[in-house]
């Protein structure tokens, strides 16, 4: 028995009520890309999400449809997820500024004491 719908186009398709469909396998919907957008001139590009595409050209087209339908956007980047190198969460401490590296901070240079002493002389 095929599907009877109030939409004549669906009835005309004669869709079976049940049918076996070969299950999709991983990669059948292509690989993933990460999307970056620039909202206006002068802004950094910001990561906004990911999508599936067969190549970078298609990824750009789909990025426009999925991530630039609202808000302002003047430029998009896409990059294959697998091409991104990143640090792991375990490495988070490498970004900690160690207190003994005070010589790299503006606050590590206090000259007023010396200047005041010099003036008093």
């Amino acid at each position: 028995m095929s599907i009877k719908s109030i939409d004549p186009r669906i009835t005309r398709e004669k869709l079976p009520e049940e049918n076996d469909i070969t299950p999709l396998k991983e990669i059948h919907h292509w690989q993933t890309y990460e999307v970056f957008h620039q909202a206006k001139t002068g802004d950094h590009h910001i990561h906004v999400g990911s999508l599936h595409a067969p190549n970078s050209e298609m990824a750009l087209i789909l990025a426009k449809e999925q991530y630039a339908r609202r808000y302002s956007c003047i430029n998009l980047w896409v990059v294959k997820t697998s091409d991104i190198c990143r640090t792991t969460n375990d490495e988070e401490e490498i970004f900690g500024t160690t207190p003994d590296k005070i010589y790299r901070e503006a606050g590590g240079y206090k000259v007023m004491d010396r200047i005041n002493k010099f003036k008093q002389k």
Binding site: W30, Q31, H47, G49, S50, P54, N55, T81, S82
Partner: peptide
Amino acid sequence: AEEKGEWVRKALMKPDERYTVPLS
């Protein structure tokens, strides 16, 4: 819809691609 789209997805697919979990 999945059945009808299958040939398009296949035609554009590169056989040596591997799936990667998206980052965020």
